[in-house]
Write a protein that binds this DNA or RNA. Structure first.
Lengths: 228, 228
DNA sequence: CGAGAACCGTTTATCGATAATCGTTGACAG
DNA sequence: CTGTCAACGATTATCGATAAACGGTTCTCG
């Protein structure tokens, strides 16, 4: 049997293809929060039927990236500050738990993956590529989730954070010092996981998430007070 | 304006209607775990199109009640013992947190609702109606979730526990003594919420969930050892 | 002039039919 | 007898078209 390291050029059903395209458009900011998405218009642009677009939008609704109102339409999710706070609070509980579990069962291959993502983040930051940095950041966290051994927990964290990344992380164009600090704050997490210290991993992750959220709050506060 | 305490006799789209019917069939056990669900067959039986059935099945997949495999089919979710353990672990984290928040902000109306659900549970148990008891039990917990003020937390708990209720709570035909004990174990939760003691609510809920899970484990263990 | 009902255009929701997919069966060659 | 592969049947995936729902607008009547 030949090794299957290569994936098919386009995998999955058309519906999944469409949802991938739209997701990417949302992540990249080509679709703005609150913007309406027309089924027929999208279907014409992508040369698929309305049915297929609908299925894709249902998947994205599931992921929390769009909101659908019955008989009215679909729009890109727009998170209020309270919704962000609520999501972060849940994420804090779930992800610190995942990290503690991961510390006990993470494999060398997964540790190597973590290191690779850290390098990607650092490289992207050096090149001022915020979007790529955020993507690699998400991949870093996802690797930790995957190492916790609780599949349901992974699904929930995915649902929880997809909109956070799309509408918070991907957008923040913070100053360089902040980014540097954020990059470094992955290191204690990695060190704790590598040495199997569950409590330390939990603590490192809590600090990482808390400081990221506080920085986000500072960002929005600045923006509000300067625009008023 | 007339008061709107009465709901329309059938609310929502046809797709939602179908998903309600199928959900009910799963809860009631008319669809067994692992059983295949054919789109066309269901469409014929319910006099709707296959498209509508598909949309309903997507919703149910989202709720975790069915599993869909691409190009292959849909079957009713069948949880392994490990998946149940994993879900319960997450539920423990999220619901104890929700209870603590609820203790601080629950309204008199919600407290009355809780009491009503407790009465329903007790009445159903007296009549040996396990299914209705489980339904009221779920309603009791849902009311607590709703009182926590974190909408996302409610959604996650719903997703998490829907299959647990469908495949665990609704089925257990335990002995009367166990049921009595389970009924009573809601009382400390209610008392803690009413008096606004967050820590006590957390503790009461943890004990309730833990003992329910342990009882479930005893049940499956007995069944396994007796059938071997 | 103003309130409310009927209309109209846009968008979603549903339908019936066709296309693509996958497991299976059975024929056939080695 | 056994492994391979092509054709079949059952089921999902997708399509194009029609129906239903909603919001805004205009028209009517007091």
């Amino acid at each position: 049997m030949a090794d299957l390291r290569l994936e098919p050029i386009q995998s999955g059903s058309r519906g999944t293809l469409v949802s991938d395209v739209v997701r990417e458009a949302i992540y990249s900011g080509r679709f703005q929060p609150g913007e309406a998405i027309r089924e027929m218009q999208l279907a014409r642009e992508l040369r698929v039927s309305q049915t297929t677009v609908r299925e894709a939008l249902l998947q994205l609704e599931h992921a929390g990236l769009v909101v659908r109102e019955a008989n009215h339409g679909t729009r890109v999710t727009s998170l209020s500050e309270e919704e962000i706070r609520d999501r972060v609070a849940i994420r804090l509980m779930l992800e610190t738990s995942a990290a503690a579990d991961a510390a006990r069962r993470i494999t060398p291959a997964q540790l190597a993956e973590l290191e690779s993502h850290m390098n990607q983040i650092a490289a992207a930051v050096r090149r001022n590529e915020y979007y790529e940095a955020a993507q690699a950041d998400l991949a870093f966290h996802r690797t930790i989730w995957g190492a916790c051994g609780n599949q349901m927990l992974v699904r929930m964290l995915d649902q929880l954070t997809a909109p956070l990344f799309a509408f918070v992380s991907m957008r923040q164009s913070t100053d360089v010092a902040d980014l540097r600090r954020r990059v470094r704050s992955h290191e204690p997490i990695f060190a704790a996981l590598r040495s199997g210290r569950a409590a330390a991993a939990r603590k490192a992750l809590r600090e990482h998430l808390t400081s990221s959220y506080e920085q986000f709050l500072r960002g929005t506060h600045e923006r509000n007070s300067s625009s008023d």
